[in-house]
Design a protein around this nucleic acid. Structure first.
Lengths: 348, 348
DNA sequence: TTGTAAGCGTTATCAC
DNA sequence: GTGATAACGCTTACAA
């Protein structure tokens, strides 16, 4: 049944079957085949069947590049994220990609490593592909990025942070509240001297907001915040160990420590173990991220779980909504403040 | 200096500055501007300067879609991977993406969840974008995928597994050898009754090859393999616990267990801890993957580290080589067998 | 419901 | 080294 592929490579073109060829074989016009793919309901059942048969027979794959050029809008969405392999963002990417591809869109991905320059370069590159929409992380962008995004005239989504005052669609959570949440949890449990260990990685401004939430909560409880800043050079795991060692040498030592993320917390946990401290009796530990290993540690780690997966999924849904023309008049649609859950385990 | 953006949206087109407009402003032909971007050395320094000025002034971003259509080859590379958020592949994706974008290529990403159907659908979708190359994971593809790939007439790379007998570029390691490696390590340490806990997730055929390597090694040492298959329903972590509980109830019980991956191993570790077993004295544990948490566990986990990052980076380099026309006559270029390192920690 | 013609923004080809 | 012209394969706009 199948048409023998021509051995002659044309000088131009990919050599693939084209819409026009399908149309000719099916005895219809090219535009009908185009409609068959894009607005099937506008094609009669009769034509639909004929086209379907030819498409299957010759194995036609629509050329999205040509389509994208003609319509000035490709079925492709760009996403720039600080890093792909980190345990937090990975879930967001995964959910975003899956939801997107279920609806026929493809994901163009790049990482910025918290660098505004790299982000701008990625956004610029993506724009060259006339994406249907663009997703960026947090609200810290270079002026160039802001300009590119605002001039792009496509839906732009900012994820992870939540800044209702900003124009792009916002999907995320309030980092400040996470700090409040963790601190309040410990206060409620009766802990007296609660310290905070900052992130050792630069550029992660969101982590500083969590610290601020912690500090404010402690102050309104009439206590002084106690922030430890590890050496920037160490890995998060090592930094956590150092922090725990340093803090427990103080006198009086803290009876609870909030770590800026679970990697730090895991290091802290291990250092405390090795120092013979009982958790949570001698010292309580709270992390952030609910990384996959949080439940695997001994003691298992009490931590705050960000809605990583939800953010990715919701971002995709909002993008799809915005694309399906339904204008986003509704604030409820533009702003999407998600909730973080404190997962109480053994460490606090 | 900047041209005021026209408030009038054209009925067609993205409304962005085009090559032709840049050309007119610079007083050169369109093709010269095109060359300025693609073969700068063919443009005289004089023109180059004039073009450069206009490009910067109007903020021109080349339309890759139009370019892709005209040249039938976009600066975009598709990658299909079982899952994005897993700790193993994430590093590969990250390295691949970074290397690629450093050379001006973009990454189109999709996940298959070990499903041949989803993989085929992703490959088909990618092909619509006339990617410069395609990267897929392992050698288990549907017939449809094989057909698509072979007809695509672009560089195809198979990563993760290593199958020298297959035609596409191969970049990966021998899973079978990993099984041998782990088993031999334990034999050398004098362990007598070595069990293997299989992966609870279906579709991960590579894990079965690791098991086979284990079994063969044990047999040539004159012992019978002892394979435990956990319930498929449980999470890997839970499955690992179950496996440890079940195996340690046997009499005689194993004195060492190889787990198909680190998630399983972490579960096993915890179950052993809770059962009051000393590691590695009472029972030794070896995992696979060297997930980020392996060093955070107590005892820290002895495991085999796959070259995740190296695979991603090398895949990108090979793709770029293949694209730079340098034909891959050399087997050394087509085949890339990487090495796995056994990371000896406390658990074995 | 179906078709015709023009155009999307770039690069291949060939000429100067 | 530089340029004119014709593709590339599809969709918009409009007509029947």
């Amino acid at each position: 049944m199948s048409k023998a592929p021509s051995p002659i490579r044309k000088r131009r073109g990919a050599g693939r079957v084209t819409l026009a060829e399908v149309a000719k074989l099916a005895g219809v016009s090219a535009i009908s085949v185009s409609r068959y793919f894009n607005q099937p309901e506008q094609v009669s059942a009769q034509l639909r069947e004929r086209i379907q048969a030819v498409v299957a027979d010759v194995g036609y794959v629509p050329n999205m590049v040509a389509g994208g050029l003609a319509s000035a809008r490709g079925k492709i969405v760009g996403m720039v994220i600080p890093n792909i392999s980190g345990p937090i963002f990975a879930q967001t990417i995964q959910a975003f990609s899956d939801t997107l591809s279920r609806h026929g869109y493809q994901l163009l991905l790049a990482s910025s490593y918290f660098s505004e320059e790299q982000e701008e370069s990625a956004v610029r590159a993506f724009l060259g592909w006339s994406p249907a929409a663009l997703v960026v992380t947090s609200h810290f962008h270079s002026a160039g990025t802001e300009k590119l995004l605002s001039e792009a005239d496509i839906p732009v989504v900012e994820i992870w942070d939540y800044r209702p005052e900003r124009a792009p669609l916002q999907i995320g959570f309030a980092h400040y509240q996470v700090g409040v949440q963790a601190c309040q949890y410990l206060l409620d449990k009766g802990y007296q001297r609660i310290a905070f260990v900052q992130n050792s990685a630069a550029g992660d401004y969101s982590a500083l907001e969590r610290r601020d939430g912690y500090a404010a909560t402690l102050r309104s409880a009439g206590r002084e915040p106690w922030v430890f800043v590890p050496a920037a050079s160490a890995s998060a795991f090592e930094a956590g160990k150092q922090a725990m060692d340093a803090l427990t040498r103080r006198s009086p030592r803290p009876d609870a420590i909030i770590f800026a993320n679970d990697n730090l917390a895991a290091g802290g946990l291990l250092a405390a173990q090795r120092a013979g401290l009982k958790m949570p009796e001698d010292i309580a530990v709270v992390g952030f991220g609910d990384y996959p290993f949080a439940e695997m540690l001994l003691p298992s780690l009490t931590t705050v779980r960000p809605p990583s997966r939800e953010i990715g999924e919701l971002a995709a849904l909002r993008v799809l909504q915005a694309l399906d023309s339904a204008p986003l008049e509704d604030e409820l649609q533009r702003l999407n403040l998600l909730h973080c859950e404190l997962i109480a385990r053994e460490s606090a």
